[in-house]
């Protein structure tokens, strides 16, 4: 039985300690740990990047990350999950997000890790601003799916 309390979710302003997260998820019943290390690229659409600033709607972002982990446990036979996103200013090459997933067998760990980063990029309220030599822009992102609108039809009276 896996308990969500074994998982670890954080938004941090300091550099992410990837090795500590791997140690956190890894246990003697696991046969695999799969990780995703998202790092700051030196260019965007061919334009050299100087650095990035990340900001988040922190309580909602953490809640959404917890929901992703709950879905991971529901969909895949995995053991533990660690998801840490860094906020604030990040330099080229630094890690902005680190995900570690442990599982008894590797297919679930690979699938769950992929699911985590893909879902996070669509649903978690975090934004990055890219700084270039000649200015800064908010990165193009993905619009999270919103609940369906209520019908505007008024009941006949």
């Amino acid at each position: 039985m896996t308990f969500l309390s074994d998982d670890l979710f954080r938004l941090v302003s300091e550099p992410i300690d990837a090795a500590a997260l791997i140690r956190h998820v890894r246990a003697s019943e696991d046969g695999a740990v799969v990780t995703f290390d998202g790092c700051v690229r030196n260019q965007s659409h061919g334009r050299p990047t100087l650095y990035l600033d990340y900001e988040a709607y922190e309580p909602m972002a953490l809640a959404k990350i917890r929901e992703i982990a709950a879905e991971m446990h529901a969909k895949f036979p995995i053991h533990r999950v660690a998801i840490v996103h860094r906020l604030g200013r990040l330099q080229i090459g630094e890690t902005s997000i680190f995900i570690a997933v442990s599982a008894p067998h590797r297919p679930a760990a690979f699938d769950a890790c992929r699911f985590a980063i893909d879902t996070l990029k669509r649903t978690v309220p975090i934004w990055k601003k890219e700084y270039f030599e000649d200015g800064a822009v908010w990165a193009d992102g993905e619009l999270p799916p919103a609940p369906a609108e209520a019908s505007r039809a008024k009941p006949a009276s």
């Binding site: 998202g38 709607y57 309580p59 980063i117 649903t123 978690v124 975090i126 999270p144 609108e149 209520a150």
Partner: peptide, 26 residues
């Protein structure tokens, strides 16, 4: 209150409403 909401959602006193552009974390 930190859940995605439809535009047609009714507000209540003390609600926390946020307007969120396309997300770009990761």
């Amino acid at each position: 209150n930190q859940e995605f909401a439809a535009w047609s959602t009714a507000l209540h006193p003390g609600d926390e409403i946020a307007f969120l552009p396309p997300v770009s974390g990761g």
